[in-house]
Write a protein that binds this DNA or RNA. Structure first.
Length: 424
RNA sequence: AGAGAGGUGGCAGAGUGGUCGAAUGCGACGGUUUCGAAAACCGUUAUACCGGCAACGGUAUCGGGGGUUCGAAUCCCCCCCUCUCUACCA
C-alpha cells in the first residue's frame, strides 16, 4: 500500500509512476483519495474536540457527584447527551471515510523505480545481461517431461492419483536431486550471510494482507476454511511477516533471512501449451532470500541479491539471462524487479527461475514494519525478496541441457550434495 | 476435544467504576559523581491519528469487537489467544 504522505506530497510523481504501469484511472483515484483525506481530517478534528469536551464534563460530573450535588450533575448531563450523539455521528462517518480511502489505496500498485523501462508486456522487458552458453543438443534429444519418464525420476501420474494434476511425485535420483538442490541453495545463502529460517507453511489472514496476497489474489492461494488459514504461495509470506508490527532496532538491520519451504499455487485457469511437465506446478520447492533494509540501502541490497542468484546459476553451469521488468509486467507490489531466466535447451525457451524485487515501503506500510530513524522518529523500512532458487524449472533445464546417451551429467557443485554425478 | 485459570507499557507485576497512559520493580537512555567504571542519586523512557512552522495541545489504545454508564483497564456479551489438568497424538 502506498503511503498517504507520498500521495499528498509527491502527487505528480505518483501519477507519472502509475502511468508507467499503464494504470488507467490514476487521476480519478488519486484525487478521490485526497478528497477523502481532507474530509477525514476535518472529521477527526471535530470528533476529537467533541470528545475532549465530553471528557471534561465527565470529570466535572464526577466531582459534583462526589460532593453530593446531584442536581448540578444532572444539568451537565444534558450537554453530555448532545455530545454523545455528535461523537457517534462523527465517528460513524469517519469509519466510512477511512474504509473508502483504504479501499482505494489498496487498488493502487507500487510506483516503479526510475530505472524501470516503460512497456506493456513481457516483450518489453529489458535484457540486462546474459551468462553461460547454450548447449548444442545431440539429435534425438528429449524435453524434460520425456526424460523424467526415461529415467523414472518424476512421476506425474502417481501425483494425479494421490492428489491431482500439478503435484508431481519425485522418485529415486529425482527425489535426491531435490534434496541436494535445497541443501545447496541454503548453504550458499548461509555463506552469503543469510540466517536460515524454517517457517510455518500455513499463514493466517493478517499475514496474507501484510505481504499483499490479500485481498487481491485470494483465489491464487489454497485456503483451509475450517481454520481460515492459507497455504503459502512463497516463503516470502511467513518470513517477511515475522516483522509485521515491529520496530526493528537499527543494530539488527539489515535483516537477511533465507528459508526453504514448499510453495502452493492454485494458478486457476492458467493451464495450456506452455505449462507441460515441470514448467508450472501447484506444489513446488523453493529457497527464498529476504532482506529488510533502511531506505537508503535497499537498492544496493537488491543488486546484491541479484548477484547472489547469478552466482548460483553460474555454479549450476546453466545459461541464463537477467531481465529488468517493464512497468507493465512488474508485480503489483514491486518497485523494481529483475527476473532471472535459464535456457531450457530442448524446449528452446527461457524459463523464469527467480524474481528479485524491491518493494520499498509498499509492503512495510501494510506490515507496519519500521525502525527508529535519527532523531527518534519511526520510519518505514524497505522489504526485498528473491527466489534463490525455485527448483522445478532448474531441474527441467539441468535435465534437458545436460542430456547425453550416457545419461544426464550434473554440475560439479551438486556432486557432493547428490552423492552421484549423473542420472541414469 | 472437555474442565479450570488468565491475557495490563521492552520485561516483571499492581490496579474491580471517576483526574489511570496506568503504581512499583527491572531493563534501557541522559545527567551528577569518578582518572575511568561499578554503586548511589536525579531525570527521561509507548504507538497512532488530528491541530500547529514549532514549542506544544487534543484524541485513541490495558488481547480484538460490541454493549451498559455522565464516566470503563475495572461491569455485561461475542470472538481470539496463552497456561494448567484430562483426553488424544508425531
Amino acid at each position: 500500500m502506498l503511503q498517504l504522505s507520498v500521495l499528498k506530497e509527491q502527487t505528480a510523481q505518483v501519477l507519472a509512476g502509475l502511468a508507467k504501469r499503464n494504470y488507467k484511472t490514476a487521476e480519478v483515484d488519486v484525487q478521490a483519495i485526497l478528497t477523502l483525506d481532507q474530509r477525514r481530517r476535518a472529521l477527526q478534528t471535530q470528533h476529537d474536540q467533541a470528545q475532549s469536551e465530553a471528557n471534561e464534563l465527565a470529570r466535572q460530573i464526577g466531582g459534583l457527584m462526589k460532593s453530593g450535588d446531584r442536581a448540578g450533575a444532572d444539568a451537565l448531563k444534558i450537554r453530555t447527551a448532545e455530545l454523545k450523539t455528535q461523537i457517534r455521528a462523527h465517528s460513524d462517518e469517519l469509519t466510512a471515510v477511512e474504509k473508502g480511502q483504504t479501499e482505494l489505496l489498496y487498488k493502487l500498485p507500487n510506483i516503479p523505480h526510475e530505472s524501470v523501462p516503460p512497456g506493456r508486456s513481457a516483450n518489453d522487458n529489458e535484457v540486462v545481461r546474459e551468462g553461460g552458453s547454450k548447449p548444442e543438443l545431440p539429435a534425438g534429444s528429449l524435453p524434460h517431461w520425456d526424460l523424467i519418464k526415461k529415467y523414472d525420476i518424476i512421476d506425474f501420474e502417481l501425483g494425479i492419483k494421490i492428489t491431482g494434476a500439478g503435484f508431481p511425485v519425485y522418485k529415486g535420483q529425482g527425489a535426491r536431486l531435490q534434496r541436494a538442490l535445497v541443501n545447496f541453495f541454503l548453504d550458499e545463502a548461509r555463506d552469503a550471510g543469510y540466517t536460515e529460517i524454517q517457517p510455518p507453511i500455513l499463514v493466517n489472514e493478517a499475514s496474507g494482507y501484510g505481504t499483499g496476497q490479500l485481498p487481491d489474489k485470494e483465489g491464487q492461494m489454497y485456503h483451509d476454511a475450517a481454520d481460515n488459514l492459507y497455504l503459502i504461495p512463497t516463503s516470502e509470506v511467513p518470513i517477511t511477516n515475522l516483522y509485521r508490527d515491529e520496530i526493528i532496532p537499527v543494530e539488527r538491520l539489515p535483516v537477511r533471512n533465507t528459508g526453504y519451504t514448499p510453495c502452493f499455487r492454485r494458478e486457476a485457469g492458467s493451464w495450456g501449451a506452455d505449462v507441460r511437465g515441470l514448467n508450472r506446478l501447484h506444489q513446488f520447492d523453493k529457497v527464498e532470500i529476504v532482506q529488510i533494509t533502511q531506505p537508503d540501502n535497499s537498492y544496493a541490497a537488491h543488486a546484491d541479491m541479484v548477484a547472489h542468484v547469478e552466482r548460483l546459476l553460474q555454479k549450476l553451469e546453466l545459461p541464463y539471462r537477467v531481465l529488468r521488468l517493464c512497468g507493465g509486467d512488474m508485480g503489483f507490489t514491486s518497485a523494481l524487479t529483475y527476473d532471472l531466466e535459464v535456457w531450457s535447451a530442448a524446449q528452446g525457451r527461457w524459463l523464469e527461475v527467480s524474481s528479485v524485487s524491491n518493494f520499498e515501503t509498499f509492503q512495510a506500510n501494510r506490515l507496519k514494519c519500521r525502525y527508529r530513524a535519527e532523531g527518534g522518529k519511526t520510519q518505514l523500512l524497505h522489504t526485498l525478496n528473491g527466489s534463490a532458487l525455485a527448483l522445478p524449472r532448474i531441474v527441467a533445464a539441468l535435465l534437458e541441457n545436460n542430456q547425453s546417451p550416457e545419461g544426464i551429467r550434473l554440475p560439479a557443485a551438486l556432486h557432493s550434495y547428490c552423492g552421484f554425478e549423473k542420472i541414469g
